[in-house]
Structures are given as structure tokens and as C-alpha cells.
């Protein structure tokens, strides 16, 4: 049996592929003004990060609230290596990813014994512990609270003059994350992960190596999130524990995935493309970001979304499609069990 046969593109996949490629590789050449370019970079970057979260949170159904740990490791590793050893962020990125993978492996031992909200609480604690330890470590290392990267444009330094280049970079990152999600979700791994997500005891009873497949999803997710952390550091050129290791980030990523459609391939992109401009608009409408007024509305919207659209926009679309079908016969049910749709 040829394992690659599961990766054959379906007609709907082609549309999705076209959309993703257009967003990631064509839009960067089209935006002209600085403001939209900035929003585009953020959307593509966060979409990539949310896709990374989606691999463990959506495909495997383990709601991590500690992804800031991986993102922070990615950002800090590459920045420290660049600032203190002159190592190119392209290599630092891989180093950060590797460290993230090691951390994910270590915390998988205690956390994989839990599920649902307890996994969420434990991973939240991991992210927070890392932030506190990083701040505490300054007692022993001459590490400043925040790190800045000198603005010296250059491809090897991963610093660019124009935002379009950053957008292109973030676009490539997003496509990498989407490709990983696609391969994972359409292969046997994806079937196992969905089985684990829906009922881990049944999956275990049916002979699915639960721990191994959860771990695969967790490691891939941690690695990709760390890559995004490096990208974020290179774009903002400034990091501190309060930004790249914040709880807000750990909440934002799942939120985007949920809004778009948790467990779907393009859901995180859709979620990011709606949420980030929405938040920017709210900040503008309701005055400065410090006042918190926009976050009141943001919290309200979050509640509305999860209560009214628990499967996200793409999930809602699927349901609409299922409803409009002449007869919701066995084929519709089969589609439902197959789960992930682009």
C-alpha cells in the first residue's frame, strides 16, 4: 500500500492551496503602504504560529496553554546566539527549535498523563514557570531584562529593510506549518490523532500507540512554534519576557485556531486574518491600547465565538454544507468521521 495515496489533493484542497499560496506568496508583492504590510506580516506570522498550535491542540485535541514557552525559547535562543556569538538567526532558529523539542519531550512525561482542562492548566504552568525562571536567572547571569537586535539589514542576519520581505518570510513560514499540518492530518498519523482526540481510551483499546502519536504532534508543534518565535524576534528586533513569554500569546494562538476552525488545515489562517485586523481596528476605535477598552470587547467576542461557533467559521461552513445536501445520509456521516477538511 502506498502511504502517499492519502496525500493526493482533493478538489477542495486545490482551492485551499491556491488561497494559502496567494496569501503567503502573492500578497506580499501587492501591498504597498506600510500599515497594511505590517498587518500582513502579523497575520502570516500568527497564522503560522496558530497552525503550529493547531497540530497538538486541534489535530490531537490537547489544548496547550503553554505555547508561549516554545515561542519564547525560539525568540531567546536565536537572539542570544546572534547578539553574543554572532551566529546567524537562520541557524539560531534551528537551535531554538531543537531546544523547544527537548523541552516538549521533557514536559510530555508529566503532562501527557492528563487531558482536557488539566493538560491546559499544566502547560499554562510550564509557560509561566519558564517566564519566572528566565527573570530569576538574571541573578546569576548578566542578562538584561530585554534584548534588542541591532538594525543592520542583511539576508544572513534575517533583518530586512522593507516589510514586504518580512511578509514573504512569514508567508514561507506559514506554508511550512500548513504543509506539516496537511501531511500529518492526511497520513495515518492524522487518523490516529483524531482517534485520540475523540476518545483516547477507545483509541488505546483499538491499539493506537497513544503516547507516541501525541508526542509526534507535540514535538512538531513545539519545533514550528519556536521557528515562529525567531521570526517574531527578527521582525520586532526587541524581546522581553513580558512579550514573547506572555500568557496572552498562549491564549491568542488557540483563539485564532478556534475562530477559524479548530483541527482544520486552513482554520488558523482564517482566524488570524480576522482576529488581528479586528483587534487593530478595536484599538483604533476605542483609543489607546493601554486603556483596555478594546480588550473588553475582545473578551466579549471570544465568549460569543466559542459559545455560538465552537467549530469555528470553517466548521460552521461544513455544517452549512452538510445541511444543504439533499440527504444527510451515510456519506455525510463518513465525512464527519473523517474530520479534517481544508
Amino acid at each position: 500500500m502506498n502511504p502517499a495515496r492519502y496525500l493526493i489533493l482533493r478538489p477542495a484542497d486545490l482551492i485551499g492551496l491556491a488561497l494559502a499560496v496567494a496569501a503567503a506568496l502573492v500578497l506580499p508583492f501587492l501591498v504597498r503602504d506600510d500599515y497594511s504590510a505590517n498587518v500582513l506580516v502579523l497575520i502570516l506570522l500568527y497564522a503560522g504560529l496558530a497552525s503550529s498550535w493547531n497540530i497538538i491542540g486541534g489535530l490531537a485535541g490537547q489544548f496547550s496553554l503553554g505555547h508561549s514557552a516554545f515561542l519564547g525559547i525560539g525568540a531567546y535562543t536565536s537572539t542570544l546566539l546572534y547578539n553574543y556569538a554572532g551566529i546567524s538567526p537562520w541557524l539560531g532558529m534551528l537551535a531554538g527549535g531543537s531546544i523547544s523539542v527537548v523541552l516538549a519531550l521533557l514536559i510530555s512525561y508529566p503532562t501527557f498523563r492528563m487531558r482536557g482542562v488539566f493538560f491546559a492548566m499544566a502547560t499554562l504552568a510550564v509557560g509561566e514557570t519558564l517566564r519566572i525562571l528566565l527573570i530569576y536567572s538574571r541573578k546569576f547571569f548578566p542578562l538584561p531584562y530585554s534584548l534588542s537586535i541591532d538594525y543592520q539589514p542583511g539576508l544572513a542576519r534575517m533583518i530586512f529593510e522593507d516589510r514586504a520581505s518580512y511578509a514573504l518570510l512569514a508567508g514561507c513560514y506559514l506554508l511550512t506549518c500548513l504543509a506539516c499540518t496537511f501531511v500529518l492530518s492526511r497520513s495515518y498519523t492524522g487518523f490516529y490523532l483524531r482517534a485520540i482526540r475523540d476518545n483516547d481510551e477507545a483509541a488505546d483499546a483499538a491499539g493506537v500507540p497513544v503516547r507516541r502519536y501525541k508526542l509526534i504532534a507535540f514535538l512538531v508543534s513545539a519545533f514550528l512554534t519556536a521557528l515562529g518565535g525567531t521570526l517574531m524576534a527578527q521582525y520586532v528586533l526587541y524581546i522581553e519576557p513580558g512579550t514573547v513569554l506572555s500568557i496572552e500569546l498562549s491564549v491568542d494562538l488557540p483563539l485564532m485556531a478556534i475562530l477559524g476552525g479548530i483541527g482544520t488545515i486552513l482554520g488558523p489562517l482564517v482566524g488570524a486574518a480576522i482576529l488581528l485586523p479586528l483587534r487593530e481596528t478595536l484599538v483604533e476605535m476605542l483609543g489607546g491600547a493601554a486603556s483596555g477598552a478594546h480588550l473588553v470587547l475582545y473578551g466579549f467576542l471570544l465568549i460569543l465565538i466559542v459559545v455560538l461557533l465552537p467549530n469555528g467559521l470553517l466548521g460552521g461552513l461544513d455544517r452549512l454544507r452538510a445541511l444543504t445536501r439533499s440527504k444527510p445520509g451515510p456519506s455525510a456521516d463518513a465525512a464527519k468521521t473523517a474530520g479534517v477538511q481544508p
Binding site: 489544548f63 482536557g116 482542562v117 491546559a120 491564549v251 488557540p254 483563539l255 478556534i258 479548530i262 486603556s291 483596555g292 477598552a293 480588550l295 473588553v296 475582545y298 473578551g299 466579549f300 467576542l301 471570544l302 465568549i303 466559542v306 459559545v307 465552537p310
Partner: peptide
């Protein structure tokens, strides 16, 4: 509803209340 809904509905409420207090 699934736990996910409860987690994020209460997280949303947390963000809402915290910032309403800030305002």
C-alpha cells in the same frame, strides 16, 4: 458542551472583566 468551550468562554470572561475593571 466540550471542555474547550468552557475553558475559552471563561478565559474570555476573564479578559472581559479584567479590562472592564481597568477601564
Amino acid at each position: 458542551k466540550p471542555e474547550l468551550t468552557q475553558v475559552f468562554a471563561t478565559l474570555g470572561l476573564s479578559i472581559l472583566l479584567q479590562n472592564a475593571a481597568l477601564v
